[in-house]
């Protein structure tokens, strides 16, 4: 059991370290400024909001043709804040925050937390690399169980 614990621990050190560091950074993504965070009050009623196509157009004009050409990944509407977050599918994952009533651009920034999420899952290296985070997760579970076994089993036997 000791050798299994040792071998698994040493061999999976790298991938477990990546999982830990990215996990901590993701937990504190707002405090670390890894994503645009715009405090905003609604400038009108939700019923008077501009159509999605108009908001997407405003965001595309704000980022320029190069980023807009990558296409929109998703649009995240926040009726309570009166804004919509338009996320582009470019390498830097640019996000434009737009007022849903006026179409005013409130913020343009990079969603570095998306990149961290992909690194956390292994997805950043390509399809199939998600298995890396599976290996790390299974390893941690086995290391915890074998660690407890190594600690408690000799005491129980005594």
């Amino acid at each position: 059991m000791f050798h299994a614990h040792l071998w698994l621990g040493v061999i999976t050190t790298g991938v477990v370290m990546v999982l830990c560091v990215t996990g901590i950074l993701l937990n504190h993504k707002r405090a670390l400024g890894l994503m645009p965070d715009v405090p905003h009050e609604p400038s009108g009623a939700f019923e008077d909001a501009l159509p999605l196509a108009a908001l997407a157009d405003a965001a595309a004009r704000a980022v320029g043709p190069e980023i807009a050409a990558a296409g929109i990944d998703r649009m995240d509407v926040r009726p309570g804040d009166g804004l919509i977050k338009v996320r582009f599918d470019d390498r830097a994952v640019t996000e434009v925050t737009v007022d849903i009533n006026t179409g005013e651009i409130l913020e343009i920034g990079e969603r570095n937390d998306v990149f961290l999420e992909k690194l956390h899952s292994g997805e950043i290296f390509g399809d199939g690399w998600i298995l890396l985070s599976d290996i790390a997760a299974v390893s941690i579970a086995i290391l915890i169980i074998s660690g407890y076994w190594l600690w408690l089993y000799p005491r129980v036997r005594r």
């Binding site: 050190t13 990546v18 990149f115």
Partner: peptide, 16 residues
């Protein structure tokens, strides 16, 4: 190398 890899992996995606 592990330390260098960890730091490099956390560079912003624009540098990737």
């Amino acid at each position: 190398a592990l330390v260098a890899m960890l730091i490099t992996a956390h560079w912003p995606p624009v540098l990737w």
